[in-house]
């Protein structure tokens, strides 16, 4: 995105792209889909937004379509299987690496740490649907966020 639109076409400044990205990140859904919608809207209104979203999904859709057609046959091949077994071992470290990046800035107030731990336990030991956990997060976020912000307003130190 940065290369294509900021540097080549000069359609948008780096700062604007950052703004779009931060709004896209704070909304639910795939971030890239949200960025496409915001950027498309900026260039061509709502129709531009829809066009950008659908344009963005087509290439990966085609790639996965091809892969999943051959998935069963590929997977039965012992060499492909060996390579996939190797890659399976990489999945947990990759998610771990991403989680390390998520930690930064994710727990600004002490109750957030408790919320994180409760979330780990709920995911592992109860069958609760993750969407209810996210809804709980929205409600508690409103409570915790507004409480600490009010406290900061009263105590400027």
């Amino acid at each position: 995105m940065q290369q294509q639109y900021v540097e080549k076409q000069k359609e948008i400044t780096p700062q604007e792209l950052l703004d779009l990205a931060s709004v896209a990140k704070s909304l639910p859904g795939t971030m890239i889909g949200n960025v496409a919608m915001l950027y498309g809207y900026r260039v061509g209104g709502l129709a531009g937004g829809f066009a950008a979203v659908f344009g963005m999904i087509l290439p990966p859709f085609a790639v996965i379509l091809v892969i999943s057609f051959f998935y069963a046959a590929f997977r039965a091949n012992p060499w492909v299987n060996a390579a996939m077994e190797g890659m399976q071992a990489a999945v947990v470290p990759i998610i771990f690496g991403a989680a390390v990046n998520l930690i930064k800035g994710s727990m600004p107030y002490p109750p957030c740490v408790l919320l994180m731990l409760i979330s780990v336990a709920a995911y592992l030991f109860t069958g609760i649907n993750p969407i209810f956990m996210v809804i709980l997060g929205v409600v508690l976020g409103l409570v915790i966020g507004s409480y600490y912000e009010r406290r900061q307003d009263h105590d400027p130190s």
Partner: peptide
């Protein structure tokens, strides 16, 4: 911003759950 104060730790926690 407030909503994210609650949602981020929840998401992080569930990602840790997936890792485990």
């Amino acid at each position: 911003q407030w909503i994210l104060v609650g949602v981020r730790p929840i998401c992080l926690g569930m990602v840790v759950g997936v890792i485990l």
